[in-house]
Design a protein around this nucleic acid. Structure first.
Length: 432
DNA sequence: TCTGGGGTCCTAGGACCC
DNA sequence: TCTGGGGTCCTAGGACCC
């Protein structure tokens, strides 16, 4: 058996943790640039604020219902997420947890006796709340997809379930699937949901009763087939190895104001390159290919039709050094840039990642941009390590490349940010 | 005026090979 | 009129997730 542990309205719960006065007030958290609503407390949902609604569209409602609004504070959420995951690790064992996202983890419950599943899950839920202050819901079932179903209902019917649902009998599973709209099923997005509804398949239960071949043919081949088996209690999606590295690493941002100039784009791309390179080094990878893309606003008025332009380059040897990577990404921005359109966003992607220590130097290349022996890269590596160290301990871009600019007026807006209570000395929670 | 960021996996189709 | 069969590799793009 598996379990899915999911924090309730995670970002809102984090904001409330240090603001008990918000306990019964509606709370929402906005995306970067204070663009859309990406997290809502139950009260905010009840007030009619939809997921993903642009902030400017619900300002009225926010005022009317006295909603507390926050910019996203990822340092705070990241730190509290770690506390939750560590708690679970401590109770269940380090190899029994797969952290799936900042607020979710799949748990391996195979060692727990069938008659104790429910009690175990309830105890776990209770302990996490007690130790971290974060409320979680737990769904237990034979497969990951069924855990998702269980978890969703556990949360939706809090009063009845106490945030825990165990699907350990076929009748329970059937009933849960019947209560799950097909579009709410994990793995069924907008497109498939629409298609399925046209066929009269309205619930997860109906989908699970279709012929396997039909599902395979109409729901993306093997992906659909897997979903079908999972719905029928046959596990196809295993626990993932936590040590697995990412295959692609990127950084992108919408701009905080109107951008037309090459100078701003260069600075932004240099910044994103630096940020993505940091992520590369954190998992000890080096990139073989870099891609830069720019997104422009469309010419058509009143509609939102962004257009993406991208260009890529292969490195002479895989690298994770910020200065080397910037030397590839900046020429790409320059090649892509055209005078005229307004730019909304830029991004950098690194792919074909290889382990950092296995990278080969290019035999025909001179010793590189910095002085020194053996590819001239040892010093460079030390420099990057020092840079990462300083920036990690200071929680920000304390030291950065000049190419990323000084003024940086294109940076995103975050006007409603709460203090980083748990990770910054000068923003600690104070008791008077 | 104002719409996020970071990923994964899979398929189709073209180019190329013998 | 009639034009093979089997395979690999790569890329672009679709669909999904939180």
């Amino acid at each position: 058996m598996y379990a899915l542990l999911d924090c309730n309205s995670f970002y809102c719960s984090c904001e409330r943790l240090f603001r008990p006065d918000l306990e019964h007030r509606p709370v929402v958290v906005l995306s970067n640039n204070d663009g859309c609503v990406i997290a809502r407390s139950d009260e905010a949902k009840a007030a009619g604020i939809g997921m993903g609604t642009p902030y400017f569209q619900c300002r009225e409602l926010v005022r009317e219902k006295d909603v507390a609004v926050f910019s996203s504070n990822y340092q705070l959420y990241g730190d509290l997420s770690m506390r939750v995951m560590d708690t679970v690790r401590q109770l269940l064992g380090p190899d029994k947890i797969e952290v799936y996202s900042v607020d979710e983890a799949f748990l391996d419950f195979s060692a727990i006796p069938p008659d104790q599943l429910e009690a175990y899950a309830r105890n776990l839920r209770q302990t996490v709340e007690q130790w971290t202050g974060i409320r979680v819901s737990i769904g237990v079932a034979q497969t990951k997809v069924l855990c998702k179903v269980a978890n969703r209902l556990a949360k939706k019917q809090k009063a009845v379930t106490g945030c825990v649902m165990v699907l350990d009998h076929p009748e329970k599973t059937q009933s849960a699937l019947e209560q799950t709209e097909v579009g709410e099923t994990w793995g069924v997005g907008h497109q498939y949901a629409e298609k399925l509804r046209q066929w009269g398949i309205s619930t997860a239960w109906k989908l699970s009763r279709m012929p396997e071949e039909w599902v395979k043919k109409n729901l993306g081949g093997v992906v659909g087939q897997r979903l079908f088996h999972e719905l029928n209690g046959l596990p196809c999606i295993e626990m993932k190895d936590p040590l697995e590295n990412k295959k692609m690493i990127g950084t992108s941002r919408m701009f905080g104001r109107r951008v037309f100039e090459l100078k701003d784009l260069r600075e932004a791309v240099a910044s994103y390159t630096a940020r993505a390179a940091e992520k590369l080094r954190r998992q000890s990878s080096a990139a073989s290919v870099v891609e830069v893309y720019l997104v422009t606003a469309s010419e058509e008025k009143f509609t939102y039709h962004p257009k993406k332009y991208s260009a890529s380059a292969r490195l002479s040897h895989p690298s994770s050094m910020t200065n080397e990577l910037i030397a590839y990404t900046l020429p790409l921005v320059e090649a892509l840039f055209i005078q005229g359109p307004r730019y909304l966003k830029a991004g950098v992607n690194f792919s074909e990642l290889v382990p950092e220590n296995s990278t080969q130097c290019n035999l025909f290349e001179t010793t590189g941009k910095t002085s020194g022996s053996s590819c001239g890269r040892k010093e460079n590596k030390k420099l990057m390590a020092a840079l990462d160290n300083i920036n990690a301990s200071q929680q920000g871009e304390m030291v950065r490349f000049a190419a990323s600019g000084l003024e940086r007026s294109w940076k995103m807006r975050q006007e409603l940010m709460s203090p980083r209570y748990t990770t910054k000395w000068n923003e600690l929670f104070e008791v008077h």
